[in-house]
Amino acid sequence: MSRRLNAADVGHLCTGAMFVACTIDHESSKQYRDMTLALIELQGGGPVLAPVGSLDPAAMTTSIGFVNQGLMFSEMIPVGDEFETAIALLQERLGVPLQGVFPLAAASVNAMVAVSVALQTGLPLVDADPMGRVFPLVSQTTLALAGLSAGPIALTGPTGETAVVDVFAPARAERIVRALASELGGWAATASYPVTAAQLGAHGVVGSITRLIEIGQILDSSLHTQQKYVRLTSLLGIRKVIRARVTDVEGLSRPSVPGLPDRPSSATLVDEAQGRIVRLEIQNEILMMIVDGAIQAVIPDVITLVRPEDASVAGLDDLWVGNKLDLITFPAAAQWYTAAGRALVEPMAMNVVGPVRGGRAR
């Protein structure tokens, strides 16, 4: 059943969105949270969160998300109408009205952007997305796995310049959109993957917005840290929690593989309970966790960080020598554990650490 989100829901959603996307820049998520809360107060109500099944199966929907190329959103803050412009351009190209929006990734800033856009436009926020976590590439979606087109894609840059790209193949869309984002000024607000509600329900990660809110409700509560972990385990199927102290952080000199994110790095931590050596391989997010030389979690698994004193969400900037953190892993959406899903995302991790033999990294 559809419902209108309130201010508390938005706050919890932001916490959940940051938890499932361990990144450097959590500030953008908080900025959009605060913008949305101010708009809710001004308008007297939040956006409508609509289950996929509540929409007409033929209703056209679109994903909403930022694509950036080197420029962080906090360096050139959006004016606020970029996504409305992109939606209008996409509707014009499609020749039919859009009847719902969903985040390109139900995680990090793109989850919060979709909430804000739904409130601004009056369109329902559809309770689904095509990633179920965050991946860095536009082509890494469950809709792409299903053979659906990424385009047409409408883009608006920070200077107000726009483009509409007629492209089918998601991999090709990734290259073109990324290049356009660079030319438009460093980032682009995009409306992509125009699909019907029936297609989104069949091939998307359904209920992902509600899951973020539920995660946030747990983490924002006054429960003890261990009680929070018990509830998160029930909700997410947490596989491992390791409390460890950072002993080393290094930026790697090797170049990034073409077409993959920049800034490869790694962090070494020591497990406080058992003395195990934990290594995190990072490339804009945590791609792999290795414990005493054996891989314990690897993308598409979600690997994230929280502060042990209260289970508040931590980020990659909390990986400084001497800091103590809880490392948490849990499975991503089921689509990513199919042969096709693994083939689309696992090469990111393999290109960071090299071939894997017998469960150990070389």
Rank of each mutant, 00 (worst) to 15 (best):
I176G: 01
A8M: 08
A198G: 06
G46C: 03
I277N: 11
V352A: 13
A197T: 03
V353D: 02
E250F: 08
P331N: 00
T61M: 06
A7W: 06
A59C: 10
E281Q: 11
E75F: 09
L71R: 10
G359S: 07
P152T: 09
P308W: 01
V257F: 15
T159P: 02
T23R: 05
P300G: 05
G315W: 03
A314P: 08
A273I: 12
A188G: 05
G70E: 02
Q217L: 10
A339K: 12
D129N: 12
K30R: 15
H203C: 09
A128Q: 03
G65D: 11
N110V: 00
R307N: 14
D56M: 07
L260G: 09
P158T: 02
R178V: 04
V195L: 03
Y337E: 14
P355D: 14
G259F: 11
I40S: 03
A314H: 05
L260A: 12
A202Q: 13
S29M: 03
L325S: 01
L319F: 01
E174W: 01
L252V: 04
G80P: 09
L280K: 06
S192Q: 14
E27H: 11
I303K: 00
A340Q: 15
A179G: 06
L287F: 12
G185Y: 05
V138M: 09
S63A: 15
V138F: 03
P51W: 10
S265G: 08
S108H: 10
G204C: 05
V353N: 08
Q227D: 13
F19R: 00
S139I: 02
V109C: 04
Q69N: 08
Q120E: 14
G95T: 13
M288D: 14
E309P: 07
E214Q: 08
Y229R: 13
R172P: 01
R172T: 07
G11F: 01
A8K: 15
T142F: 04
A267N: 06
